[in-house]
Design a binder for these strands. Sequence first.
DNA 1: CTTCATGTAACTATTGTAGTTACGATTCGT
DNA 2: ACGAATCGTAACTACAATAGTTACATGAAG
Lengths: 147, 147
Amino acid sequence: MKKDSRLSSVLHALLHMAEQGKPITSEVLAKCMCTNPVVVRRTMGLLRNAGLVTSERGHAGGWRINAELSKVTLFDLHDALGEPAFFAIGNRNENPNCLVEQSVNAALDDTLAQAEALLIARFKSVTLAQLAAEFARRHAKYRQQKD
Amino acid sequence: MKKDSRLSSVLHALLHMAEQGKPITSEVLAKCMCTNPVVVRRTMGLLRNAGLVTSERGHAGGWRINAELSKVTLFDLHDALGEPAFFAIGNRNENPNCLVEQSVNAALDDTLAQAEALLIARFKSVTLAQLAAEFARRHAKYRQQKD
DNA sequence: CTTCATGTAACTATTGTAGTTACGATTCGT
DNA sequence: ACGAATCGTAACTACAATAGTTACATGAAG
């Protein structure tokens, strides 16, 4: 299956929006992410439903962040996107009668649950503010190398 | 995307094969897993390529385990299946020029890498023998409840 | 009232497993 | 030698979810 890159997308968009004070249009975000404005609206719309961003139509319209960067975590974004599945592997049959299959499912479920718990814990611990700071570091280093 | 259930499938098949001394046909395995013999052959063929099972054609043919149960781990099976992707989420663009996107990718990559390391460690620590033992426990309990 | 934007529906493209059909290639029993 | 049982494999369809595209409606600002 094709990987879901929406979390990656919205993080990219949100950090660019954080840099700018004014609203950014779907058109600009789309160009910046090598895609189409409709895809941007569709994805950002999920964040709007969750109250994390606002959108305005017409002249000087666009998208704006509606939350403190230090209070929005990757988990919040993943949640706003509808909690897409983390894993590309899973059980063949979730409710088997076969005891063999039940044992197999239990073993895989247990392992995946641990990995998911780790992912969720990490997602909850990373904020937009931290990512913005990390970007600032990269940016400073880049400018330094350029000189 | 549809989840990859091949690891689950081959575990189920291998444990049934371990129970039986003689070869099991694709037909029987298929029935047991509610699928088609061709799907079984296709998937089990990957294990044969890795030397974990053997197949024989003709009368009294079928599939047989070709390894010690205590030496085959979930990792070995995942490897034999061609190391399918663990995750259903990922970066939009793996080699971006944009420094913002690089920061985002680095953060996600780091988190996913940790979860993947955990999965791999667990997969390496679980053997077919352990799963067979776990099944035996379930089986005993089930027979006890039935009495 | 025109232009700039978002909102949204509808359709296609993509990607990989799963399922199905068909047929070829072996092996064994008689 | 024949025929049935099995695997081997190609080719095609089904499916599911995101991504991409086209088209058009809606609303806000000048």
